[in-house]
Simulated scan of single mutants.
Amino acid sequence: MQIEFSGRSVLVTGSTSGIGFAAAKEFAAAGARVVVNGRSQASVDAAIARLKEAGSPVEGFAGDLGTASACARLLDEQPAFDIVVNNIGIYGPQDFFETTDETWEKYFQANVMSGVRAARAYVPGMVERGWGRVVFVSSESALNIPADMIHYGFTKTAQLSISRGLAKRLAGTGVTVNAVLPGPTLSEGVIEMLKADAERTGGSIEAVATDFIAAHRSSSILRRPSTVEEVAHMILYVSSSQASATTGAALRVDGGIVDTIA
């Protein structure tokens, strides 16, 4: 099966590093016109430079898509996309009783409303053209709510509701909507979080991540973290023409952490 995106335009939000960057790189390598996004011009420029080194022509948009103003500016600059990957997201542990209203609102705007606004802006054009793909990058935490990040898990569950409902709303249009649920993944952000433990124990980042999974995600079948490329491959597949019969799905790339046969 040869997946290619020649003639397709793709927006990957939150794509200057991690899973988003890996997906942008794979889309570009497969022939798509890709727009990468980050909150600062410096991060966008750095991502574009890295992708150009790999021979991938890309464009960029600097702006915090967790705000309505940045989403409106993006629509003005980029009026149409065939594929929208809603990858922007923030995370971090915090006890429920210490999580303020402001934090709840911040997570909701960044993790949920960014995707709502992007879909609202770009899906009507996809429907008119009779083809389109929307992907919400959720998390296994949507199903396996972490006790120390309830505010985060809530936003990831919300993405599943939006993805499923929007897929049903677009029935018969040629536009599919799906969610991809990564488990623990060795992104730059996770690596940064694990550095202190690696330095303390003298172990590698990979070994520390594997120990974390054994201690905190003991239901993992993979027994190791995923790579950003492994998650990106699922995003590319579900965005492809070959995945035309897959819609309204929650596709797990969690190494089997969620203990279910469904």
Rank of each mutant, 00 (worst) to 15 (best):
S239Y: 08
V175E: 02
S138Y: 03
W131V: 11
V58Y: 03
V137S: 08
S161C: 09
E230H: 04
T13F: 06
N144T: 13
V231T: 04
E229H: 01
K52P: 00
D45F: 01
D64T: 05
L236R: 12
L65W: 10
E206Q: 15
A147E: 12
A215R: 15
D101M: 07
I257V: 10
R223W: 02
W104N: 11
N111D: 08
I205K: 04
K195T: 15
I88C: 01
S204P: 03
F136D: 08
G189N: 08
M234F: 07
R169D: 13
S161N: 12
R33C: 03
G202V: 07
P93M: 02
S241I: 14
T210V: 01
K52T: 13
T103N: 10
I88Q: 05
H233F: 01
P146N: 15
D211K: 14
A47I: 06
T185D: 04
I3L: 15
G66P: 09
A179D: 09
F5V: 00
L160P: 02
L143Y: 13
P124T: 06
A49Q: 12
L181H: 01
V10D: 12
D259M: 10
I162P: 01
S219C: 04
T246H: 14
A24V: 07
G55P: 05
G31R: 07
D95V: 09
P57H: 11
A198S: 14
A207S: 13
E98C: 05
S69P: 07
R8G: 07
K52A: 13
T227Y: 04
E59S: 15
T176G: 09
E128A: 15
T103K: 13
H151M: 12
A49S: 15
P93F: 05
